[in-house]
Simulated assay, not measured.
Amino acid sequence: MRLFERAEAVRASAPLRWGLAAGAFAVALATRFAVDHLLPAGFPYLTFFPAVILTTFFAGTRPGLACAAACGLSAWFWFIAPFESFAVNPFVLVALGFYVCIIWVDVVLIHVLHAAVIELKEEKVRSNALLESQKLLLADQKERERQRRILQRELSHRMKNTLAMVQAVVSQSLRNASDPAKAAELASARIMALARAQDALTATSWSAAEVVDIVEASVAPHDEGGRFEISGPSVRLEAQRSLGLALAIHELATNATKYGALSNTSGFVSIRWDLSGSDGFRFVWAESGGPAIGEPPRSGFGSRLTLRVVPNYFAGSAIADYARDGLTYTLTGTRGSPEAEESGH
């Protein structure tokens, strides 16, 4: 293959191609003159055939044909009787016909040979490209399979978490209610609150949800006439914290509708949150303008949910201040990170 590579290098340069053709012709002619006295009659082309063949192989078809024409005319003029003339007779025609046939066969064979080598190289390039494409497809298939397994584990994890939370909501609602119908209503409302939070999480592929989205989705069923003021920076909560916060807001809004600021026409609720340090999070629900309230005589599931269960999700604590003007609920803890949650699956 090195010969073919060298031939390609010569063919790529016009000066080299035509220089080789001229040089090969000159060497062939000089050699023919040098050995003329050693050769018997009938060998006019002996040194010219190799020149044409080498020129065609290394320089290409056109330089090869040019060299063949120069060699043929030189042999006709100097080495075919009558010498030093371009006389035409049967002997000359036979000699020239023989020369043309041999040269034509040589040139065609060399051209076909080079074309076959070029086709072989192109086929090798195509094969390498196909192999590379197959490798990429295989790698893509493996990556898709890996992603599918990850999604399956993720779905299983999310379903387990959601079912566990639903189970806790239902069991606690039934345990603390004397009326089965009332218990079913409470459980249904709390599950709907979870569903709204899940909608916010679904929009971000369950990686995290913005606090403002959770708050707005949770208070939407209770917001009549702009009774809520919502403010806070952009904060993304991981899935478990998002669901917990949604449940807490649902309980607070339900109690406000029954007993607090949303039970009359003049009450108002301020919802705000802020950050502290690298991971600190504080959420405040503050009611005003409602009827006078006091601390409930007994602690139900709603109170335990907002003061104990939800703070655990945030690795923090919560307090409820039953002031005369309205309830203020403050949740402090950490906001967590989606990356930490994913690595723990």
Rank of each mutant, 00 (worst) to 15 (best):
V10G: 06
P15I: 04
P15S: 02
L16E: 08
L20H: 11
A28G: 07
A30K: 06
H37C: 00
P40L: 13
Y45L: 07
V52I: 14
R62H: 08
R62M: 10
L65G: 00
A69G: 13
G72K: 05
G72L: 13
W76D: 07
F83R: 14
V88T: 12
V105D: 09
V107C: 00
H111T: 14
H111G: 03
K121D: 12
E123Y: 01
V125E: 10
R126I: 05
N128T: 06
K135F: 06
L137E: 14
L137T: 13
L138T: 10
D140K: 12
D140W: 06
Q147N: 11
Q147D: 07
L151T: 08
L155T: 13
N161W: 01
V166K: 05
S171F: 06
S173D: 07
L174V: 12
D179Q: 02
A183T: 04
A184N: 07
S188H: 12
R190P: 02
R190G: 00
M192H: 09
A193I: 09
T202R: 13
W206I: 00
V212Y: 03
E216A: 06
V219N: 05
F228N: 04
I230A: 00
P233K: 04
A239F: 06
Q240D: 13
L247H: 05
A248Y: 04
H250A: 14
H250P: 01
E251V: 06
E251I: 01
T254Q: 11
N255H: 12
N255K: 12
G260E: 07
S266W: 03
R272D: 01
R282V: 15
S288H: 10
G290W: 06
A292G: 10
R298I: 05
S303F: 02
A315V: 07
A318S: 12
T328N: 00
L331F: 06
S337H: 10
P338F: 10
A340W: 04
E341N: 05
S343M: 09
H345I: 14
